[in-house]
Design a protein around this nucleic acid. Structure first.
Lengths: 241, 241
DNA sequence: CGCTTACTGTTATTTTTATAACATTACTGG
DNA sequence: CCAGTAATGTTATAAAAATAACAGTAAGCG
């Protein structure tokens, strides 16, 4: 193994532990010039990426994607976050909370104050990811096969695990809400978990932006009347809307 | 809501979707000067962090920790990675693989080539995290309560799920390996899963660095003879070592 | 209205980072 | 041992980013 290989390995290693390392630091660490580290990094784009003078592990597609200016508007991010802000009012400290998958509720997770003690049950990767850094949250993840489309896990054991849990509040998401045809989502594999979570919870809230109202999506999982409230960016939806 | 609040919200929003946004881009996006964005970011250290001119979401403790020069040596990273390189030889494409928790095997995951088709079963967050970006891997995560010490999930449903799986190879980790007193780890909650995974698998490999040899840790989970091989940085350990 | 205060922008200056060119050292195969 | 090549370091220069100081602008309030 050449000195170069050793360096590259050392760098990968350091990056595996930290997520970032500064160019200058890396150079000092392996006792070579910054220029050499720069060249090492540039020669291994499959291993390393950079953010300014900071070296980061490669393969973070999110870091590379360009940002369409109105992508936020398109996906109703503002409305989703606003809805989550309203939903936050229904979250009591020290309770056990179910949080559904979907981008809307990741906002809710982001908005949970750091000092709020909670037990949170979820089955989406991006939800879990945001939770593990929060010290006051006990996280329960329902496992299963990973579905990339919704970044969530699905499997029989998820529903089983729910059976053994006492859930105070469930926050559900949906991509279609129709007074007659009920509440629906895109993925069928989410249905059993959503249903079971709703069944187990004392209180059930549907959180979504208003663009979902009137839409019908393939996987039906509940009726509008099954929820204690429907929360959108405008606050709680009147029950006769 | 003041214009400033709106900006800060917009920035959080953008960061929720992308993980990074460049200062210049952010300024353009909200039509203010870079200086204003800088000030917004600086005033909300609980919301935003920065890496050079790139704005990132706050609360990434890993990005802030200082790097002890010989922390890598202390934790035997090089040996661990080397052991994982050897272990890689026992991984066959198209098989179903169980991967234990622990830092050693995160190296193994990093080393899996992008084009290798696999079904991987795991129960550690950091293992799962590295897998979800790999397109050719079907991921099955065993859920349960999250244990921060080992970044893993534990619960009855994990072992249940394993029961329904056909596993070809299991890669186990350990923090103690003693010919007489067996193989052990730090956390008791890992034991049921480790045992069940070993029971279900056709082949069982223990992957650890040699510093673990001769050590005994609190939670015993197997005997040395239960493994088809023990793989360290020196390769396969002779069965009479 | 006029005053104060908070926000924002501009500019100048310093520091850091990026790039390129060239010099030096180390390694390779005859 | 001696090309010849790859690897590394050094330096110069250009570009980008960080900081500070000041100027203008908008908002709040008696």
């Amino acid at each position: 193994m050449t000195a170069k290989d050793r360096r590259i390995m050392a760098l990968s290693l350091a990056l595996a532990e930290r997520k970032v390392i500064h160019l200058k630091e890396a150079a000092a660490l392996m006792q070579v010039s910054e220029m050499t580290v720069r060249r090492d990094v540039a020669e291994n784009p499959d291993l390393f990426g950079t953010l300014g003078a900071h070296i980061i592990p490669a393969g973070r597609p999110d870091l590379e994607a360009p940002y369409a200016i109105d992508r936020a508007a398109e996906s109703h991010s503002v409305a989703k976050r606003q809805a989550s802000i309203h939903a936050l009012r229904y979250l009591q400290p020290d309770e056990t909370v179910f949080i559904d998958c979907g981008s809307t509720l990741t906002h809710l997770v982001d908005l949970i104050p750091a000092d709020t003690r909670l037990t949170v049950v979820c089955y989406a990767f991006n939800t879990a990811e945001r939770m593990i850094t929060k010290e006051n949250i006990t996280l329960i993840l329902l496992g299963g096969v990973f579905h990339p489309t919704s970044a969530s896990f699905a499997g029989a054991s998820g529903a089983d695990t729910l059976n053994a849990l006492g859930i105070n509040v469930a926050f559900l998401s949906a991509s279609g809400v129709d007074r007659q045809r009920g509440v629906s989502c895109e993925q069928f594999h989410e249905v059993p978990i959503k249903r079971k979570a709703m069944e187990m919870a004392q209180r059930r809230y549907l959180v979504c932006d208003q663009s979902k109202i009137g839409r019908v999506r393939p996987a039906h999982f509940a009726d509008v009347s099954d929820f204690d409230a429907i929360i959108t960016e405008a606050g709680e939806l009147p029950s006769d809307a």
